[in-house]
């Protein structure tokens, strides 16, 4: 079992979460050339090692998180809210 420390709920089993894929994909502008859209929709780096990815705390607080995880060892590193506003208001301590 992978354990992910949700910044809101604390450390939980990964079975509470739903995987959301590569978090480094940046979507281009709507009128960007087709090559850019092809890259964003279809192409992945798929690294063997550190990977930045989305997890949705589906059976918890329902926050979308960005998790740094190693795809070879499954070791979890930094976890933070995917939404920058949420990150600021919760982690900023305001």
């Amino acid at each position: 079992m992978i354990r992910i420390t949700c910044p809101f709920c604390g450390e939980r089993d990964h079975s509470e979460f739903s995987y959301g894929g590569d978090a480094t994909v940046a979507y281009p502008a709507l009128d960007a050339p087709v090559e850019d859209w092809n890259a964003a929709v279809y192409e992945r780096r798929n690294p063997r090692g550190p990977h930045k990815e989305y997890w949705h705390h589906l059976n918890g607080c329902r926050s979308w998180l960005v998790v740094e995880r190693d795809t070879l060892t499954h070791e979890v590193g930094k976890v933070e809210f995917a939404h920058p506003g949420l990150r600021e208001s919760v982690e900023g301590g305001a």
Partner: peptide
């Protein structure tokens, strides 16, 4: 197992 992985070992869920 529904997440990217290169580990050739399974997970209990």
């Amino acid at each position: 197992d529904f997440y990217n992985s290169y580990a050739q070992r399974g997970n209990l869920p």
